[in-house]
Design a protein around this nucleic acid. Structure first.
Lengths: 199, 199
DNA sequence: TCATATACGGAACAATGTTCCGTTTAACAA
DNA sequence: TTGTTAAACGGAACATTGTTCCGTATATGA
């Protein structure tokens, strides 16, 4: 028995780590398919674990929802960095805005859960903003500096605007509404570029 | 066995009518105390009936929620007529806006249920609007005609504005936030009067 | 007063969140 | 490699709902 870098007692057992990941992955899929109210048993089954295993790591249903949400936020925010590294500033910006758009659309069910009044979700809006706002700020700043976007747009305003656009056009959940949404978002991205100006 | 005016077969039994009313009244109270997710058993108990009785008249939980909501809307809309009859136009307007304010505050839990995506509640926003908008329009028109309010305010806009005000200030549910809310609403009512103008 | 359609109450059933515990196994030392 | 053991596992069992069923009670009309 030895202490790890953080001072906790023991190493996480390999199967435990594997299962935690499997559960989160399964939950993401099931939530997307059946909504956030999907039965815990269904998630456990999809992950190939027993409900006991699931509950040891996520004592309350809401813990699992929160974990999935944060994981998705982290993934989307991380993509901002990746895109910024791999693409020219303007393109990185517009690619990420589409990525963000997908995030919003797939989290439709989650969004309503956030406003359900359950205190378990109180921290999520902050988590959302404190991750996405800096991410977008960086992309915007880089694009503006490169002369590929205007520099007078507030990141949070843009997040909200696109969030509203994306969550509005979701009637049939298939490609029908999505195309319309993407067209609107493209319009907005064009606006960012068209209005560009030298600093 | 005789038909009534609407062509339906039979008269409603007295105990049935009594129980229906008791259930609705109990549901209103319980929803206010424990939220719209309160157990059906709790409502049945408060109404002094068995769950079977409750379910005969409201086959789904949501039917009960809808019925309570509509009943509250009806009551609030009816009060508009009563106030218009018993008070001078300007006073009737301002009294009813406070009444409406209370409606919004006590229906906080219900409001989130409306946007839960459950199709059972799809009709409620329309019901809300088609009752309240004409009610307020009448009050506004009368007050404007009497020179006690401006005449360039859209009823629905005002409903939304005050609805937002009232539903915003509801942190502790006690008198704390309510006072602040009422002050804002009073401000708005003053605005209606201050800005009055002859037609 | 009687017959009966109607309504009633609450037990029973189904679905789901959560807990419990006997069994399995990863990790470590000899 | 093998033995020991704390950790993790699975899923049965329990608790809390929504909903259904049905034997019993009763309001109504004749």
């Amino acid at each position: 028995m030895q202490e790890d870098l953080t001072g906790t007692k023991k190493r996480i057992r390999a199967d435990a780590a594997r299962n935690e990941d499997a559960v989160l992955e399964a939950a993401k899929t099931v939530f997307a398919k059946s909504g956030v109210d999907a039965p815990v048993r269904e998630i456990a089954k999809a992950a190939g674990v027993g409900v006991g295993t699931l509950y040891r790591r996520f004592p309350k249903r809401s813990d699992l929802v929160v974990a999935v949400f944060k994981r998705e936020v982290d993934g989307c925010a991380t993509d901002a960095k990746t895109l910024a590294r791999d693409y020219p500033p303007g393109e990185a910006l517009s690619l990420w805005l589409r990525r963000y758009c997908q995030f919003i659309v797939t989290k439709k069910g989650l969004a309503s859960a956030l406003h359900s009044g359950d205190p378990a979700f109180d921290a999520l809006p902050d988590y959302f903003r404190s991750n996405f706002e800096p991410a977008l700020e960086n992309l915007l700043a880089a694009a503006a500096k490169a002369g590929e976007a205007r520099s007078d747009i507030d990141a949070y305003d843009l997040l909200r605007a696109i969030g509203n656009l994306a969550s509005a056009g979701r009637k049939s959940a298939d490609t029908e509404g999505m195309e319309h949404t993407y067209r609107m978002v493209d319009l907005m991205i064009d606006g960012l570029r068209f209005g560009k100006r030298a600093d």
